[in-house]
Amino acid sequence: MTTAIDPVIVAKDLRKKYGDITAVNGISFEVHRGEVFGMLGPNGAGKTTTIEILEGMRDADSGDAIINGINVKDDPTAVKAIIGVQLQQNAFFDNLKLSEIVDLYAKLYLTNVDPVEILSRVGLDKRKNGKFAELSGGQKQRLSIAVALVNNPVVLFLDEPTTGLDPQARRQLWELVRKIQAGGATIMLTTHYMEEAEELCDRIAVVENGEIIALDTPDALIDQLIATGFKPKKRVREATLDDVFLNLTGRDLRD
């Protein structure tokens, strides 16, 4: 892995318009080495556009996106070479085996990997001869993370990695994210699930109408809210419906 420069991700006043719609309206933040940084917000808030500007998938109208010291504007190819990307919608060649897909993507970064080892990291080694189209939603997400890992990235971008997954698959993915973080990568993710952000993220940015309206650790944000005298509508119980569901159906993955 390339040595990470701190901060690994720098966004400076990013702006992007689609016609009359302002998707990103002056977003700035920094992500430190080894952090899991979450971006939260409703649909259309500008999360995906921001993350895609950082990935070199979209050009910003103005502002700078700097990954590991490289400005995306100046050298998108160099940035793409050191990051791992999971897009919101991922699709891979449908007539290749999973191991062949991983191998192909490794070669696109001019590296060689052991596809089975990479697949085992996401728990898909048993499906190495399967095809992408045959996978379940959770498996597809895990494969796309496996593919994002082939170049041993400095930064891993995950755009809504658990949307549409069942609670079991979601928890499995969280574990995977923690494992990747433990391996030294910096991770930036977007999500709709507050519980997920609380569980995984060291810091979160809440985005609304293309602007960051809050940025701190999950604990600090909760404390700030409580300090305003906020009381939840419903008394918090010892367990949630999520816990009930998992207790009834088991924590094992369904694949």
């Binding site: 919608q89 891979f92 993507y105 696109l108």
Partner: peptide, 17 residues
């Protein structure tokens, strides 16, 4: 098909031209 499925978009995220 690759384009409408998003296979090409995923390739765009790699350093290839």
């Amino acid at each position: 098909r690759f384009k409408s499925q998003g296979v090409l978009r995923r390739l765009k995220a790699t350093p290839i031209g």
